[in-house]
Amino acid sequence: MSKYYWGIDLGGTKIECAVMAYEDDRCVVRQRIATEGEKGYQHVISQIKRLIDQCAEEVGAYPTAVGFGTPGTLDPATGLMKNCNSTHLNGQPLDKDLTACLGVPVKLANDANCFALAEAKLGAAHDINPQAEVVFGIIMGTGVGSGIVVNGKPLYGCHGIAGEWGHNPLEQDGAPCYCGQHGCVETVLSGTGLERFYNDTAQTTEKVRLPQIMALAQEGDAIAQQTIDRMHDYFGLAVARIINVIDPDVIVIGGGVGNVDSLYEQGRQAILPHLFNPVLNTQIVKPKLGDSAGVFGAAMLVK
């Protein structure tokens, strides 16, 4: 049996590989190279092979299997990738092509699932409650992604879309979303959505970014405070729906919006009016692993 398990985080601009030790889950090798997606799908496959070979040379062993975190989902019905913002992946049989290129079995999961898995097994959720049955991981950044881990395993679902919290309508008559709906969680609670609300309301000539909005709220800017209050209210409504359905032990919030401290106080309180329970026992925490979560979670797919 190999001493190591391997993961790849396949991003839009970089591909990262981590080789982890079975004995203590220590990362023994970690390397990155550019994705170069503009050169096409087959080139990206060759870049992955190049990176695997580099890491294999460094660690002195070739993988027996590789887990992949991807910016989309493998459709169980068609065997093809879908919903990838790295559009060269859409419509491709990525798992089959990787298996053929690498010569070893592969396992794919959405990058948000990998984030949730790593935080559940090695990160913040594990530290708080190692026995947690259900962990919900949220990435609130430019967009909104999320994943569900049940009894230590990511949940995929019949359509491969389990955990797609970001594409549920939240704001009636809200902004259009690329998915074709309006007022999705992603259009409201992403960093992009929060910035759009502030800039549209304030009618600014220069676009104000989220850290500036937070600072302006501290200085008493009324529209900045309105933006933050609105974020708390919609966060409470959207997260309460998740808790009412899957009742997670721990929710971990990553991404830039997850750095907003008030989410863990006022945002938490905003859940209660919508909760089908008189008290909120779910722990809501910041992540522990930072940008390591995706690649560590990918490796855990084949552990």
Rank of each mutant, 00 (worst) to 15 (best):
M1D: 09
V279R: 08
N281E: 15
V134Y: 08
E206M: 14
S46I: 02
Y156I: 05
V208H: 05
H126F: 11
Y156E: 01
S146Q: 06
T142H: 09
C177W: 12
V59E: 09
D261Y: 11
K96S: 03
T201C: 06
K3W: 06
G255D: 07
E16S: 06
L194K: 02
F197H: 00
G91C: 03
A118N: 05
G40R: 13
G174I: 14
L117G: 03
C84K: 10
I246F: 07
N129V: 02
P63N: 08
H232K: 13
A202N: 06
L80R: 13
G174V: 13
A18F: 05
A18L: 09
F136Q: 01
F276Q: 13
G191K: 00
L289F: 15
D173Y: 14
L272P: 00
K303W: 04
A217E: 13
Q203E: 13
F115Y: 04
G7H: 05
G255H: 01
Q47I: 09
P154A: 00
D229I: 04
P93A: 14
G220H: 07
C177G: 08
Q226C: 04
L51G: 04
V28D: 01
G236V: 03
V29F: 10
G69Q: 10
P71E: 12
L89Q: 06
H88P: 02
T192G: 05
I228E: 07
E219H: 15
L275H: 03
M300D: 07
